[in-house]
Amino acid sequence: EWIKFAAACREGEDNSKRNPIAKIHSDCAANQQVTYHISGVGIDQPPYGIFVVNQKTGEINITSIVDREVTPFFIIYCRAVNAQGQDLERVLELRVRILDINDNPPVFSMSTFLGQIEENSNANTLVMRLNATDADEPNNLNSKIAFKIISQEPSDSPMFIINRNTGEIRTMNNFLDREQYGQYSLAVRGSDRDGGADGMSAQCECSIKILDVNDNIPYTELSSYSITVKENALYSELLKIRVIDLDEEFSANWIAVIFFISGNEGNWFAIEMNERTNVGILKVIKPLDYEAVKNLQLSIGVRNKAEFHHSIMSRYKVTATAISVTVLNVIEDSVFRPGSKTFIVTRNMEQNYKVGEFVAIDLDTGGPSTTVRYVMGNNPADLLAIDSKTGIITLRKKVTWDQYHMLNGKYKGTILSIDDALQRTCTGTVLVNLEDGDWEILKTTTIKADDRDKPEHTTTFSTIKNTDDRVITGVPLIKDNVHFGPAGIGLLIMGFLVLGLVPFLLICCDCGGAPGGGAGFEPVPECSDGAIHSWAVEGPQPQLMDLTQIPLDNANVIECVDTSGVYTNEYCGRETQDMGEEERMRGFELTDAVKTPRGPETCQEYSGTLRRNSMRECREGGLNMNFMESYFCQKAYAYADEEEGRPSNDCLLIYDIEGVGSPAGSVGCCSFIGEDLDDSFLDNLGPKFKKLADITLGKSVEPYPDLDPSCPPESTGPIYPPQETEPLASGCPPLSPCYGTTTVISESTYPSGPGVQHPMPIPDPLGYGNVTVTESYATSGTLKPSVHIHDNRHASNVLVTERVVGPISGADLHGMLEMPDLRDGSNVIVTERVIAPSSSLPTTLTISDPRESSNVVVTERVIRPTSGMMGTLAMHP
């Protein structure tokens, strides 16, 4: 990140006494006349004229009082032009930051906050949160609000506490009792400068309602009641039972439920609650019988409609309230009990035949009544007669067929018992079943109709003979009966045959379709998308290969890796396009050294940087995109709170140009933050830094050209599993025996300067497959980077790691490295380049604390192992 120190002005003050606040100067002024111009917000954009420049001297003055809350900062664009108005220099930017003063008090979002909390809540229960803002600079003491409860009403004892930082109001104890105080009012003050004496304050009110819980047990107004009821009587309001409850009126915590504990086994009584008065009304819903029950004891209990609060649940015990009930005897009527009686009458019963007896019962004595007389009430067909004294029922006359037919075999009449003394009447129902066994059906004859047009319509007559030897004919029993002719019968038979044939045909039909048998329903296999066959027609599904199992001496190793979609490298002409001269030389030498007779097009589809188009390729290729997205998200989050909230531009580069010896598919990340468009600093960067910077700054990066066929492409290095980068951290780069002539060059840059923040945790990239991620986020100032941090899993302050693997010829590299000719040897040279704030170049690579300086130097370390080292290279700084 490249930043510029900004000039600062204080808001609300006359800063003119500090003029000039800045000066600009061009060296071109030495030999020609230079005119300085400034532009931007506050100059030629509203608010106009806050800054002016002396066009000859380049002195910039501030002319007005500024308000940070209106314009937190200004960017002054400075130009130097010659007499012809041509720019002599590239435009410079000067950020002028407006320093905040505490000129804004806190403002509560509401004048009165409303909250509520249940009584009996535990201590420290959150009640509400107050919200206030301060327009002064965020994250500044001027906008830091401290909350404080000034007063409480009722003020018996403080019941609430407030978090001075968050404004959260919580209960102080668990003694809140709605039955004592149903509401509290608080006065709260918010003061900026964290409540300091020099802060500005505002005040608000909080109204806290105490919510009811069912923490009071109801009870009846009286502990016992005594009532008297008459037998055989119903009562709709026999007794009122008032219930007392201290909980909130009309709530379920207050409304009582009265229930019977005992005594109401006959279900004579019921209690109905009046929920507005909390009074239970005792009713008699089933008459009591004095002769059966003369006294009884009801026992009732009471609870609430709502469950009891857990704080009193254990204290609740059912308390019985006794109701003594006395049943009074009344003189009762004579009644038919049961109220109806059924008799059987047959055709053989003669006149005055005694059908049965139906007498009324005296309820007081339980025996037949002696005070009533009986008369027939409803008497269909005048069939029966009753003896007025004894209640004996007789046949008035022999039942005829006509009577039987008229009554349809059933007789239903009534008799009355009349008590002339009491002038009361009781009615009993008499039912008589007229059994038809004596009425014999003599003959049933079917007579065909003579209508030839409707041969199937016939009329059936029955001939009935009764015991009078009368023959009754012509009684139509069935009319328009359906008749089937031979043709109809034939059709019916055909129909049944067809119906029987259908299931047989269904069994024989092969609906599933024989294999290869053409059309038919094709069963959809489970766990599939129906007819989608991804790989069936296009060949086998690509298999992700375990790179660790790839034989290193296999000439097709690259094809294997490419198939798996891991980013492998070629190290021919591609990187040389962006390399400096030295690197280019190095690259060519590498090419010569590690070349293999493999086609140059093998790796092209994975070359270049991981931009949008290549992201798609990654998906297709098999790079773990979930990891990529997670990585970027966390990376962005790590920068989100960066100082001054500047946007960050992240770039992820897939190091397919790394070359032999690197873990397959290394990934680098680089972030440039800021608006500095002066990219001359790129000149000092290595090619990989430069490429990263170009990508980050949105510049188009030329794709790597195809390899020159005349340049025999080399094979990439051995494919290492990611964990094999670990030996590199200890100075032991993994090498393949078959690529013994290898040079490993690593670059590491460490951030320096103020304002770095704590690193965000980044998941171990090595757990995601063949991808090595080099972290790039800034680190906290307490972290002292060590050049030994090459373990990518732990390197939290490495920006970019470059590794070039290959033989190098020539004696001088960068003028610093003495490189032996490795083309035919097996020596390995590890070069680390460390950008660190140090003016010297310690050979021991002990880097001073980068926080202390803003200078950046590049340190290169050359580690030359002994010759003949293969594979297990041990390097020591």
């Binding site: 990140e1 930043i3 600009i24 410079l92 300067g753 304002g755």
Partner: peptide, 26 residues
């Protein structure tokens, strides 16, 4: 070279001090 200098308000002895703006790599 095209450079900007800004005033340092925090000098102890009251003298005006000018800082050239530098880019700094963090």
């Amino acid at each position: 070279e095209f450079q900007i200098q800004v005033r340092d308000y925090n000098t102890k002895n009251g003298t005006i001090k000018w800082h050239s703006i530098k880019r700094q790599k963090r």
